[in-house]
Design a protein around this nucleic acid. Structure first.
Lengths: 256, 256
DNA sequence: TCAAAAGTGTTGATGATACACCCATGC
DNA sequence: GCATGGGTGTATCATCAACACTTTTGA
């Protein structure tokens, strides 16, 4: 029912490149990343999704904000390129990283022809805040973004859609809580991203039945209420990025 | 529960390119397509999925079979490139076309560095058979493929997995029946791709409830049994490729 | 009249939702 | 004690799988 319609088309990531208008037949290849974290702007507010943007220092779109990214280096694979960009922008390594889409519309960059392979990533909440704002890097709320360079508005919207979809059938949310967490904390991640409250009782049953968490004997005290048991994510839980597995491992399980 | 794990990694499509080992720092960009059709090898057999392969006429992997594809031309977008390749190989236009994944592992092509953006497509059953075998083009059953050039074995397996997954929550199957079809015909598409029989009664209820079909007043006679009513797919049904919509249309629906 | 597939009905299992209710803590 | 969230129990409802049964044709 939620399904929508096809057609790729848009193109992304303006790899900072000199517009070699000379040999126009060249298609440039870039890798960009939409990096999400959960962060509350003010104490007491509900957490929201934030992403880092980078100010463009060259044409096209000089001065505008854009997704972090750059040309693919010959000696790195696609995911490594995304992780490198992520580290360069935030100083962090991703808790989760998945390929989003390849954007290749002809007119997505005014002069060049750029095909961008876009990844999306999750980083931990506490860490992201500490990497405050550098020059030419700014964290902004991910919803209702406009005015980005290239087709990056649309790319962020698509990444958001993918994150929300993925919440419902995978364990990505666990990338946004600490190693030990209460069920209320995990539920808060879901509620913040989905934007709607969840029934605590049903949420508990759901995640307990899924078998992805493991109870500890520790409790979180301090609230003026009954202490909450701490859980951890089971080690053997995979986050499911629905991409093919990397070379070392077998191909995607063919069984039902 | 079916979810598996992340990590992209593999790389695909060996665009036929001269191995310019001179300027080694160049990353080449190719587009390949996994083209599925349903076809019964012998009358009376159950239909199976088949895909066309192209024999490589250059190194690397000269003489081996590979997915149809080639370098991205500067004046075409990604989906157009896939559709062009599809037409060149089969003489057909796709009933369904969706981006699969971008493969970019460093060692996927022995000498070059090639990043392949792979699409998958569905073409109609009758048509595909008519485009018989050309020289250097061969249709083969899609399951249990081995010995393809590059990492194409793995890519086909992943495309198969995606097709099967998509059957369950989208309307892709309708691309493999004619404009008018009986429910038994539509069910047969599902059964062939999933590899297991479906209960006719429950299947009927399921697709009727989904609202994607429309009853006509025509019937298919000729079987030695009660004639079956013919249905058509409702015009406003989208196939859902889960990619972002193309530029003309709005971005992915943000609602719920 | 019989086989075979079209099409309808019914039942039981399962899972999700809504919500009542008890538990344990800080103040 | 009492407010607050932690945690448990349970009734209701929708969905789905299994399968009995009726309909309508070709032979």
């Amino acid at each position: 029912m939620t399904s929508t319609s096809p057609r790729p088309g848009t193109d992304t990531s303006g790899a900072g490149r000199t517009p070699r208008t000379g040999d126009s037949a060249t298609v440039q290849l870039a890798v960009s990343t939409v990096i999400f974290t959960l962060h509350r702007a003010e104490a007491g507010e509900a957490p929201r999704l934030w992403i880092p943007l980078v100010r463009r220092i060259r044409e096209p779109f000089k001065g505008l904000w854009a997704l972090p990214g750059g040309p693919l280096l010959p000696d790195e694979d696609l995911a490594s390129s995304a992780a490198r960009t992520l580290a360069a922008t935030t100083g962090l390594s991703p808790r989760y990283l998945e390929q989003l889409y390849a954007f290749g519309a002809i007119d997505r960059s005014p002069d060049d022809r750029v095909v961008s392979i876009v990844y999306w990533a999750l980083v931990g909440p506490d860490e992201a805040v500490r990497t405050a704002e550098r020059e030419n890097v700014r964290w902004v709320p991910a919803d209702a973004l406009t005015g980005l360079a290239f087709d990056h508005d649309r790319i962020v919207a698509y990444a958001l859609w993918r994150l929300r979809s993925k919440l419902e059938y995978s364990q990505v949310a666990h990338a946004l809580v600490g190693e030990l967490f209460t069920l209320a904390e995990l539920r808060s991640v879901y509620e913040s991203i989905l934007g709607s409250p969840l029934d605590p009782a049903n949420f508990r049953r759901h995640v307990e039945a899924s078998g992805v968490i493991e109870a500890t004997e520790q409790y979180r005290t301090g609230g003026r209420h009954r202490p909450a048991r701490l859980y951890r994510t089971r080690r053997d839980v995979r986050m499911a990025d629905d991409g093919p597995l990397s070379e070392g491992q077998g191909p995607r399980p063919s069984g039902s």
